[in-house]
Design a protein around this nucleic acid. Structure first.
Lengths: 343, 343
DNA sequence: AAGTTTCCATGAAGGGCTTCCACCCCCTGC
DNA sequence: GCAGGGGGTGGAAGCCCTTCATGGAAACTT
């Protein structure tokens, strides 16, 4: 394959200077329309496309945004990417993902410079990095936006998980029957720990306390993020109390398992076993699963917007954008009117 | 944040020329050990790290490999990345993912140049691009390796899905009871179509034919890649035939749903309903799900190796690396010895 | 008509690196 | 003692762009 054409070849073919070609590339207004057309034609004929590395080196844009994220294979990140993509694609930006699949990889990103830090902007998903970097700042001078995480030094887009937990608690407190909860285990690896699940549980506990509903320690089951965890949890709960019981599953994936196990045991969801998930993933709808929904796509889109503003030169103080979850009631929890809680 | 130090500052501090610094960076042998040490010390003190854009521009390495892939939120790609990562991390390469989340994004990658094409090498997952690009070649002169796809022009690492289908067919043909299969629907979007599921079914049919087992058209159920599809499929199958029945689910995700539905209906997996998955994802083990296992991690690792060789200058003809699946027998299909098929 | 302003266009400089040639120094071998 | 050969080293040239003086020409002024 022959070498890619450069700006010089375009300039020569169009009979203009390289500066003019560059201005055409960057949509600079000071180019006469017919000159612009000539240049575009030359580019077309040569199959020219600019080199992002060179653009970036020369102090321009590479039109690429990096996303550092811990995992890729979950519904949450799928939705987050969808939100980011929707905004960035429209603005003609590319999205480069840098998955942090292992501790070794994280170490590498913490120290060495990587392409990730040298694109036009950086989105950091689910990490609060203040503890990890000296000075609590990433080794880059590009704009950085956090999403699903908070840090006072950077623009942050986050969900109020404490509130979500409260909403779950307030809601379930209105039903008769014992109340249980499943807490998703944090990665044993300290590095990858994030705090969303703890925050949810804290809010949940708080709401139950205020509602005067007991929540003994053995009503909490801790497990990994998988349906299997939900199955085991339900069996455990049924040893502690008889139906009807109410389960806050902490995550939709886990709630799924609770639902399945209930059905297998012949217990009617929404009646003998009320199940409330968390996340609001699309699959909950067809399952009739009640859930505390996170607007993940909207959070992603907002993060992308904040980053675009920074890349366009905005230099105000860090912005903290808080999103609120929304409780969606579905058959997996019957309406509390039908069976109100009587202390 | 102050500007990052450059090679010149390192050179000055170490009292050497920039050429020497560059040689240290690139592990060139012709540097005296104590000079090397001095340079490394200067780098350390200045917190210097090289700029990948500049390295790439100057004709060197950026030490980054791009991966173009269609989806991110599936177990398959998680495993594939794990395989790629294991090899590349060791060789000190970064991995940049470019997810193709939409048709618009694909179009963009087909035409314009993007950072993806300008790293040191490119891995293309699950796409055969020969139809999409003029001349059947990507617009890049970097080495390209395909994985989970085949193209005679490029190094390819692929699984023999036809064989996998055959193995499934031969295996299930040994059991009594009607035989059913679930075919995973291809994306309606023509662009994202891939052929793995069709290949599996073709092999499956072939094997049944040879074994003299009938497979009428209405024994095939088509659905999306989700457990829900498996549930619906099983109910449909049970209208067509009574237990025992044998189901080739085409994908582990789908098999999962079949298994769940069977349990819910009070049918014993491995006895009244035999279920065979495809993929060999880790979760199948704890579920006792028999499956035609793909060595996805190994395929990823191999692809990374092929790419590394190309990046190191190997220029032989395109290599086609074929992997074979392996049937793993678990409780979801009892041993055929216990209940052999008698025509 | 001469002086201003505006509009376009040019190409050198520069950005951070690799490569390569030139050069120096020191060790061999005769 | 001298040519020859390496091992080390320095820095100019070059990679592909953007930016920024610089300047020519056309469009306005008074």
């Amino acid at each position: 394959m022959k070498r890619k054409p450069t700006i010089h070849e375009v300039a020569e073919r169009a009979g203009v200077g390289i500066g003019t070609v560059s201005r055409v590339l960057n949509n600079h207004p000071a180019v006469r329309p017919e000159t612009r057309a000539r240049v575009l034609k030359a580019m077309e004929e040569l199959g020219y496309t600019p080199n992002p590395h060179a653009r970036r080196i020369a102090g321009g844009r590479s039109y690429t945004v990096s996303v550092l994220l811990p995992f890729v294979a979950t519904e949450f990140y799928r939705r987050l990417l969808e939100g980011l993509e929707s905004v960035l694609l429209e603005k003609r930006y590319d999205l480069a993902l840098f998955p942090i699949l292992s501790l070794a990889r994280l170490e590498r990103y913490l120290q060495s410079s990587t392409l990730a830090y040298l694109t036009d902007g950086l989105i950091l998903a689910s990490y609060d990095l203040s503890e990890r970097f000296e000075g609590g700042r990433l080794p880059t001078d590009r704009p950085v936006v956090l999403v699903d995480a908070r840090n006072p030094r950077y623009d942050s887009v986050y969900l109020d998980n404490h509130l979500g937990g409260r909403m779950a608690g307030e809601y379930l407190a209105r039903f008769p029957g014992a109340i249980f909860a499943i807490k998703v285990e944090e990665e044993p690896d300290r590095v990858f720990r994030h705090t969303v699940f703890s925050e949810r549980m804290a809010g949940f506990r708080e709401a139950l306390l205020e509602a005067g509903r007991p929540f003994p320690e053995d009503h909490l089951y801790v497990t990994r993020l998988s349906p299997e965890g939900g199955r085991l949890a339900l069996r455990y709960f049924l040893e502690k109390a008889s139906p009807p019981i109410n389960v806050f599953a902490g995550a939709d994936q886990v709630a799924l398992g609770v639902l399945e196990e209930a059905q297998r045991l012949g217990l009617t969801p929404g009646k003998e076993v009320r199940v409330l998930g968390y996340d609001g993933h699309p699959f909950t709808e067809e399952l009739g699963l009640s859930t505390v929904a996170q607007p993940v796509e909207a959070m992603g889109a907002r993060a992308a917007q904040l980053l675009l503003e920074r890349m366009q030169g905005y230099t105000g103080p860090p912005r903290q954008v808080r999103f609120e979850p929304m409780l969606i009631e579905r058959p997996s929890t019957a309406s509390p009117k039908e069976a109100p809680y009587v202390p």
